[in-house]
Amino acid sequence: MTILTFTLIMLLGAFLAGFIGSLSGLGGGIIIIPLLTILLGVDIHYAIGAALVSVIATSSGSAAAYVKEGITNMRLGIFLEVATTIGAVCGALIATIAPTSFIAVLFGLTLIFSAINSLRKKEEHIVSESSPLAATLKLPGTYPNHHKEIINYGTKNVIGGFSMMGIAGMMSGLLGIGSGAFKVIAMDNIMRIPFKVSTTTSNFMMGVTAMASSVIYIQKGYIEPGICMPVVIGVLFGAMAGAKVLVKTDPKKLRLFFACLIIVLAINMIYNGINGKI
């Protein structure tokens, strides 16, 4: 296959990955990796590098709008970035020495976890009290709801959330993904922050988290320009198209469909990893 043909196929694949990632709420990075490795036979290291670059692009792009609307809690994001960046650096260092089969299996397991998690029922809950540590760190905030009313919310269990964020950062550095699922669990389930604030703040944090591991990736040669270019552009436009469709449709059935599809991909990846085919 010539580079031109391969680039066009990757562009189309990345568009689909971004589209599905946005509709299912999983993110484009996590879908592009099995697509590149299983379907197109690209080495997993290059796939991880390209995914990381696309994570930075899509998260920064969509974070921009939420920051302007005042939904993102920037102080909370920056505080938790201490945990995610430390995790990401550790993850990237482990990735450079870990055997490929280990990375493939871990990726498959993360994929299954994220797919199941995307089906979880999301309820908006707001706590009014905050823990003393959260108040000291000025983490409680406000956000505008659908009716443009300003809602105050409190924040709990800072240490628990911070630790979970360290794990999220490590997964991000190890696998080149945004690990949005882990980040949202840390904020939504552990720190009791409203769901809307959790997802947008998670998006806001991804760029800096990914950057912490990207330096190591660049030095090790994971970032292959010929792969990154079509992947980043494809995923970004796919994600934008997905966001447009999402406004019009109820994604419940689509979510179930994509979750099943992704679990199949994940099992395939684990199988190939164990057999040393990746």
Partner: peptide, 19 residues
């Protein structure tokens, strides 16, 4: 410049370059 050359991304070549 390179569109017509054959692709080969199936093997990872680890580099060790300073940023």
């Amino acid at each position: 410049n390179h569109g017509n050359e054959p692709e080969d991304y199936s093997v990872f070549i680890e580099k060790d370059n300073n940023i």
